[in-house]
Design a protein around this nucleic acid. Sequence first.
RNA 1: AGAUCCGUAGCUCAGCCUGGUUAGAGCACUACACUGAUAAUGUAGGGGUCAGCAGUUCAAAUCUGCUCGGGUCUACCA
Length: 1106
Amino acid sequence: MASQYQEYNQLNLPQIGKEVLQQWEAQQAFEQSVTLREGATPFVFYEGPSSAYGMPGIHHVISRTLKDLVCRYKTMKGFQVKRKGGWDTHGLPVELGVEKSLGITKEDIGKKISIEEYNDTCRREVLKYKDKWDELTQKMGYWVDLKHPYVTFENNYIESLWWCLQQLYKKGYLYKSVSIQPYSPAAGSGLSSAELNQPGCYKDVKDTTVVAMFKAVEGDRSRFLFEAAGTDQVFFLAWTTTPWTLPSNLGLTVGANIEYALVRTFNPYTHLPVCVILAKDLVDRHFKKEGEDGDFANYKEGDKIIPWQVLSVFRGSQLENIRYEQLLPYVQPEEGDPFRILIGDFVTTEDGTGIVHTAPAFGADDNRVGKKYGIGILTLVDKQGKFLDTVGEFAGRYVKNYKDDPQYKDVDVDIAVKLKKENRAFKVEKYEHSYPHCWRTDKPVLYYPLDAWFIKTTALKDRMVELNTTINWKPAFTGTGRFGNWLENMVDWNLSRSRFWGTPLPIWRTEDGSEEKCIGSIEELNAEIRKASEVLGGDVNKHYLHQGILDLHKPYVDDIILVSADGKPMRREPDLVDVWFDSGAMPYAQWHFPFENKDVFEQNFPADFICEGVDQTRGWFYTLHVLGALLFDSVAYKTVVSNGLVLDKNGVKMSKRLGNIIDPFKTIEELGADATRWYLVTNASPWDSMKFDTDGIKEVQRKLFSTLYNTYNFFAMYANLDNFSFREAYIPLQQRPEIDRWIISVLNTLVKEVTTYLDDYEPTQAGRVIQEFVDEHLSNWYVRLCRRRFWKGEYEHDKISAYQTLYECLEKVAQLMAPVSPFFAEWLFGNLNKVGQRSTAASVHHTDFPVTVAEAIDNELEERMQLAQDISSLVLSLRKKVNIRVRQPLQKILIPVLNPHMQVQVQKIEHLIKSEVNVKGIDYLTETEGFIKKKIKPNYKALGSKMGAKMKAVAAAIAAFTDADITVLERDGVYNLLIDSEQLQLQLSDVEIISEDIPGWTVANKGALTVALDITITPQLQDEGNARELVNRIQKIRKDSGFELTDRIMVKVAASDTLKSAIIHYNDYICTEILADSLEIVPQLQDGTEIEVNDLKFNVLVNKKS
RNA sequence: AGAUCCGUAGCUCAGCCUGGUUAGAGCACUACACUGAUAAUGUAGGGGUCAGCAGUUCAAAUCUGCUCGGGUCUACCA
């Protein structure tokens, strides 16, 4: 136990951080914070898996601060909060990174490098910044279990995932299907909708678009067109932004109820006469008004205005099944009846021509309508994104520049040129639209027919929507809006990824697909391995017979052949599982459920609280929800906080490219984790995107931490002098002075507010009220007013009361702020507790969060202290106005009281006001008639509802009130107004009457409060003022001479006559203040210090008494 | 293209739900003061078409609609 409070020379937050970190390390503070709560109600928190493949940034600090503060708070509230860290280790980022570092592409894997070696590299590389992450975790004060994290590539983890998949399989939620999916040729992988919904995936790009002309074939159904046209040159116009899909065109889709027009005109490129069909509503978009019914006979090449004429109008339904000639006849489909007009409900007349070019291979809508009509399918582009050899002059060309080839020529342009030449293009232009890009490679995505495994999430859509309504979303609109909409529009979850480093799909199939097995555990797989070996014989699974399977990754799982019930070999479906499944199954897999820890899992599901960036809404938040609902018919989390983006100080998103990334290590090193955390939490609500500015952190440092530090240091200095160590009994509040009871009351109100805010996951509000308390109430009022109590007088009741009060404030503030600024709180709490010994806890984070003492809250007291502050502020501003400094005592102030209650209130805090503003007394004015000039204002809120439309006239009438009118109203309580010859009765409560001025006095107002100051300085007041000035000067000399606080001195003054009186009359006072044993007036002084009091200069000699 | 959130002082934010006096705070700036809390503090000052327009109302920063600007999301549809 220390006997003295540690005092400091200056505040060094980063240094405090380092010291506290060492302390925590030494005493295992985090581990203790969990074990000390053994047996308590658990508060379940899930840590979203982080990827240690990239460096942590400042945006990681914000969400981790939120997570940490909630967990620390709940711990202090008595819950046991286990926090298992986790690493997200699979997925495309690592794979692409490894490909790049090895200088290979996807095609090389399994050829130039074995899958085994490749995956080993991924495994090695994926945690390459783990140390940096751990370091940040530590330095920012994020308490999370880093020693036993879950790691998604570990066998146990994958085994749990397999178990989950098998559950889904058994429930019939897992199925295989061909579908048109977003596919990234550059990454060689299909993309999930979640991946496609990563921010920034949709980019505005300029593509070559073509309005292509599909030549109608004359037949029974189309005869009406040819008859109206009078020519065989009849074309359907269809617009496409992806001309490379045109060779695969098999149909044209129109809307059944859309009106179409047959238009006679000329082809603008070939100038040949043609008749074209397009939606009637879109005719204006494609033809200039001036050309309508123009001069066809005299049209010639080069004319700006092309004549056109609507020949006929008809509905889309009339066009169904009309045939047309294949546009680019390289290949025909093997089956189906293509090249017809189809009817589809997705056709609009928003843009294009109202006729949709339909290539079943490259669009989801196209595929659907194509299947319905049986037009077959043509997939003339391979998985690398290039045309097949069969596509004539375009064979082998990439449809987009997937290889970063500087010589790349746009195929779309060449197709457009070809069509132009062949009289098959009606319009070719560049068009800017947004198009999805692969989030890793930044290359455009294709929609491509792929085999894939899906989770039938749509089957439980309604249940998921229902469960979502029970989740507490912060902010609420993310849950109802963003997440709610997403659930409403959900599609089945495409699980398949054709990559190498990830969780393998545990499904084995016979070659003909007639039988399949979904494996749910390692044990089951090993049994199947042995069975297959026995049934199939030979070398089957021979490497896996002895020890079973040791690594659940590729390539090992692919070696394994299982056997079907009727003895046929089964091979694994080659896909990996979407990494989002890894993270979504984390509640189960982190505990290796159900193979181990069944009880632990049951206690820890669902989570009470999770928190991540808002970008996880469709990511982790969604996959957790899906699996919770599908596997356990439960939510996976009860409360979710989504934090917004961190922008730079100009509101621009941080990116490496712009170089506006904030290095969290540097920030913490220079400004301290506490100030950084405090700033991040209090500057804006977590879910608003925040503009990060280090100047803001500096402000927090000055405003909050520096103030609190100064307050502590002030306390420590005097407490050490008086040996205050809280050894005396706690003085009951009733026995403490008014001001002590006041600050304790405010403190308890604060505890209540902070608790409410934190319970409601509103840390921003909590931080702001703490800050206000420290700055406004504790430092700028309590300490300022009580300074003398700490350094004057004997160590007895009043002084001990002051120490106990300030100690308690500091101690509780330390606890209240501990969740947000854990280091400083620890430092402050520790410094106090080392001497005070009020708590046996080794850390502030092991203590119980302060609880409001309801009896300590005194609203009347808080109200009158507010009055004291307002009155003081008014008097100070009056002094300023007339230039009388506070050290000059004045006789009195005058306060007109509005009601008896107010007078009682002010009287109780009279002494505070008097000492604060240095006046001798306060006079109250109750009978004010004729003395005070009053001002009357309508109470709009009360009057408005009564008067309604007459309000304006009433307000004008009130504004015209004379003093006499006001007196009448005050005396009678009512006043009769005549407005538009109507009698209206005015009540006293309908108006506000304030004392505006007291003639002959210097007056100031704030709201209804009025204060007048007597500025007469009598000779006696002058003396006292002079005495105080002298004290002030000598104190300065003491300080400048480097005397100790307790040193006694002897003083000689060569004062002029005007000062003598003050020195004589206030000799005792002066000596007490300056700790002087003697104060002499001498005629002359050679040495000493020259000082000035009220423009008089003279010398003072101050000697320390030896 | 739609949905949604947002727009208040040079900057960061309150106030809006529940309409009502002269729209607030902090930072920054200016001036003065204070100096045994001093990397603080006090007082005063400048700084606002509350994005714009219209409506409802006696009364709109606040409620409604539209427009503009920004963010986020959804959709990819030629």
